[in-house]
Amino acid sequence: MSFYFCLYIFMFSVFSLILIRKHILLCLISLEMIVLSLLILILFYCLMFNYSFYIYLFMMTFYVCEGVLGLSVLVYMIRCHGNDYMNSLFVW
């Protein structure tokens, strides 16, 4: 049951990422939802087959680095452009 819940969260976040493209913050939140659902699926996989949790910690490290990188790009964009609209990136 929880496996289907993780897949539901994953599909919902991909769907929201496709539809909501106005603000970068909303895109980052959708990406983090995707990452969290994948991390929960990796946890269930490790628990189901009695694997060690080193792959879980390894993936969590990459996901934290991805989140920090996304927030730093967001802060840089707000400092340079004054907003987080996606369309302000492509206007010269």
Rank of each mutant, 00 (worst) to 15 (best):
M1V: 13
S2F: 13
S2R: 09
F3N: 04
Y4M: 10
Y4I: 14
Y4G: 12
F5A: 04
C6M: 10
C6F: 10
C6A: 10
L7M: 09
L7K: 00
L7Y: 06
Y8D: 09
I9C: 09
M11P: 01
M11G: 05
M11N: 08
F12Q: 05
F12I: 09
S13Y: 01
V14C: 08
V14H: 02
V14G: 01
V14A: 08
F15T: 11
F15A: 12
S16I: 12
S16T: 09
S16W: 06
L17C: 00
L17M: 06
L17I: 01
I18G: 00
I18Y: 09
L19A: 07
I20G: 03
R21W: 11
R21C: 09
K22S: 10
H23N: 13
I24A: 02
I24Y: 04
L25E: 03
L25K: 13
L25C: 06
L26K: 06
L28W: 15
I29T: 03
I29G: 00
L31Q: 10
L31W: 08
L31V: 09
E32A: 07
E32Y: 10
M33K: 02
I34H: 01
I34A: 01
V35S: 14
L36F: 15
L36D: 03
L36G: 07
S37A: 14
S37H: 02
S37R: 01
S37L: 06
L38F: 09
L38W: 02
L38P: 00
L39M: 10
L39P: 00
I40S: 06
L41C: 01
L41H: 02
L41E: 00
L43Y: 14
L43K: 06
L43P: 00
L43C: 05
F44Y: 13
Y45F: 11
C46N: 12
C46I: 13
L47T: 03
M48W: 09
F49Y: 13
N50C: 06
N50L: 10
Y51R: 04
Y51A: 02
F53N: 03
F53I: 12
Y54C: 05
Y54R: 07
Y56F: 14
L57P: 02
F58G: 02
F58A: 06
M60K: 05
M60I: 08
M60F: 14
T61S: 13
F62G: 08
F62D: 00
C65F: 15
C65E: 06
E66S: 15
G67A: 12
V68T: 07
L69Y: 14
L69I: 11
V73Q: 05
V73A: 12
V75K: 12
Y76H: 13
I78G: 01
R79Y: 15
R79K: 15
R79F: 15
C80T: 15
C80D: 12
G82Y: 04
D84F: 12
D84I: 04
Y85E: 12
Y85C: 04
M86F: 15
M86S: 11
M86I: 15
N87K: 13
N87M: 11
N87I: 14
S88E: 08
F90N: 03
F90V: 08
V91W: 05
V91H: 05
